[in-house]
Simulated scan of single mutants.
Amino acid sequence: MSYFEAFILALIQGFTEFLPISSSAHLILPSAIFGWQDQGLAFDVAVHVGTLAAVVIYFRKEVLTLFSAFLASIFKGDRSKEAKLAWMIVIATIPACVFGLLMKDFIELYLRSAWVIATTTIIFGLLLWYVDRCALLTKDEYQMDRKKALLIGIAQALAMIPGTSRSGITITAALYFGFTREAAARFSFLMSIPIILLAGAYLGLKLMSSGVAVDTNILYTGIVTSFVSAYVCIHVFLKLISRMGMTPFVVYRLALGLGLIVFLLAS
């Protein structure tokens, strides 16, 4: 992998990890169009580190508050709204962990195709448009309850299907339950932290056991680029969604899905 390829792939990963437009749909484009090889396990770990650092640092105050409240709820019986939200994030994380353990091999074998990605990009884009159009937009993230958190967590588990978009499907689910766009996005970003952490740890363990040699300069390129692009993406997205809603992302998803279909038919 060249430095240019590492930079472009990390840039794509950073921008698309938190936008509701599907990172998997974008990451197949360089290999499909330019014939680039798979980035490899070490690079996957690097971009996970970068995006995790971005969301943790951006929400550093919330993360520290929620983590402290979570510990206080265990050891001191704290029942604050911050403690409740922390537990809702834990509950929302469980389905993806279970689904990942049970379905990972099946998805890798049968669902990681460009046709699946094109189809899910379009279908879940239309679902996002419909829900955003009908959403009540009245609740903040502190009004999350166990049932809603669990169902949003199940939606997050479905994002293992390529083309779905983790942030897209979780924001869609939160909007369906009446949360504001900002609250839906914040909850989606906060619940991404344990998932990215677990995924990065899993890939890291696989990397250590594989004994594959790594180019540290390429990895540093991936970490820094994915960190910067993800941080900028989170900031801009949260600033703009209250004014423009989800329609621009829906239009983009439809164009991307249809473009992939045209490319596949022509190839």
Rank of each mutant, 00 (worst) to 15 (best):
T120S: 06
G100T: 07
C97W: 15
M88G: 14
T93P: 09
A72E: 07
D105E: 10
L111I: 07
I117P: 03
T119M: 10
R79A: 10
K84P: 04
L109T: 06
I107M: 08
G77R: 10
R112L: 13
I107C: 12
A96M: 10
W115L: 07
V116D: 11
L85D: 01
I89N: 14
K81T: 05
V116Y: 13
A86E: 03
C97D: 07
K84E: 11
F75W: 13
L109N: 14
A72R: 02
D105R: 13
I107G: 02
K81M: 15
L85K: 01
D105W: 02
W115F: 09
F99A: 11
S113K: 06
A69D: 04
L109F: 14
L109Y: 14
T121L: 05
T121W: 02
T120W: 06
P95K: 06
I91V: 08
I74D: 05
I74F: 00
I94P: 07
M103S: 09
M103A: 14
A86V: 02
A86L: 06
W87D: 01
M103E: 13
I122V: 03
G77E: 10
V90P: 12
L101P: 15
E82Q: 08
I117E: 04
M88D: 11
I123W: 00
I89T: 06
T119G: 11
L71D: 15
A86G: 00
L85C: 05
F124R: 09
D78W: 02
S73N: 08
W87I: 15
T93K: 06
A96C: 04
A114F: 13
F106Y: 09
W87K: 02
I122K: 00
F106V: 05
F124W: 01
K76W: 01
A69K: 13
L109D: 13
S80L: 07
F75D: 09
F124L: 06
F99I: 03
F124P: 04
I117V: 12
E108K: 05
R112K: 14
A86T: 04
P95E: 05
W115T: 14
D105A: 12
F70V: 04
A118N: 03
K76F: 13
L102D: 05
S73R: 03
F75M: 04
L102F: 03
T121Q: 12
I74T: 13
A96L: 08
L111K: 03
F106H: 07
F99V: 04
I91Y: 14
V98R: 08
D105C: 11
F75R: 10
F70D: 01
K81V: 07
Y110P: 08
E108H: 07
A83P: 13
W87H: 01
F70L: 05
L111N: 02
K81F: 15
A118R: 06
D78Q: 04
L85S: 01
I123K: 05
D78K: 05
V116G: 10
D105I: 05
K84A: 08
Y110K: 11
M88L: 06
T121N: 13
T120D: 01
T120E: 02
I89Y: 15
A114S: 09
I74M: 06
S113Q: 01
G77S: 04
M88Y: 10
S73W: 00
K104G: 12
I117N: 05
F106S: 08
E108G: 00
I107N: 09
C97P: 04
S68G: 12
A118K: 03
F124Q: 15
I91S: 04
G100H: 09
I89S: 08
